[in-house]
Design a binder for these strands. Sequence first.
DNA 1: ATACTTGCAAATGATTTGCCAGTGT
DNA 2: ACACTGGCAAATCATTTGCAAGTAT
Lengths: 152, 152
Amino acid sequence: MTIASEHPDLHARNLPAAIAALRAGGLRVSAARRAVLEALFAAEGPATAEELASGLDGRLPVSDLASMYRNLETLEELGLVRHVHFGHGAGRYVLSAASGCGYVACHRCGAFTELDDATVAALRDGIEHTGFVARFTHFPVVGLCPDCVPGT
Amino acid sequence: MTIASEHPDLHARNLPAAIAALRAGGLRVSAARRAVLEALFAAEGPATAEELASGLDGRLPVSDLASMYRNLETLEELGLVRHVHFGHGAGRYVLSAASGCGYVACHRCGAFTELDDATVAALRDGIEHTGFVARFTHFPVVGLCPDCVPGT
DNA sequence: ATACTTGCAAATGATTTGCCAGTGT
DNA sequence: ACACTGGCAAATCATTTGCAAGTAT
């Protein structure tokens, strides 16, 4: 976990922009890297390294998970990508441009939703007095979703 | 991850009470089980399976991590114990009686603090409109602690 | 040409499982 | 006695690392 420059959060809105960001970051634009970005843009939400690598579309230049992880990490350092942990199990990666600033996840069924800015702000204020500055992008708020709440 | 009876939360305040709870739960009181409980009561806060097994006090009847995990899981099902994840790395186990209802953890230095009931209630209210019922016991609120907040 | 990347294999860390011997009740 | 447990080895899962061969610039 490199301290890195605390994620610049590039927010590239499309492939070309992301590729440009890669170049701007002094990184090489390889087929694998391009494929990882394509997979991320094609994904519907936070996806695991494995989902990105194998499923998603079929022809994938990134046959190896190690490369997948390496590239995701690189992109994360650049600020284009970030990853979230919904409960136990594999982490999930998203384009930072495609994700809001927070999530709530159900620890029982795995469902998750994005939180709007106002909600995140409210939560942040709620723990402000502890001196902590909360982020809900890497570890979401966890609890039970409507369907899993008992007595309902 | 057994659905189990959603953790009764026994809150045994001392070893004898915990042992009684074990018996009441139809479980056997073995030397290993007793040792795990002792380690938990001796711990100062959420501890990893490894810390509980090896460090803590020296003479440990539980020489094997597999047993440690098995027992922790059993105790968790009983409701005596629960575990929390502070960032990446090993999970940490605590007696449910010795822990509040929520935590905030720093994703950079690993520091963590318990949240008081009022704060947890406030946070819960903050995401109420999403239909989710938040719990901060298994996955804490994550962010930066005072010492790691940048511009300070 | 050369430094950055990839793929493959093997290593890690955390946790789980199979299995048989041991022991609480 | 007998079902529940413990220890040990081996298996899993997610992720990382070492390295030699490949490639973007």
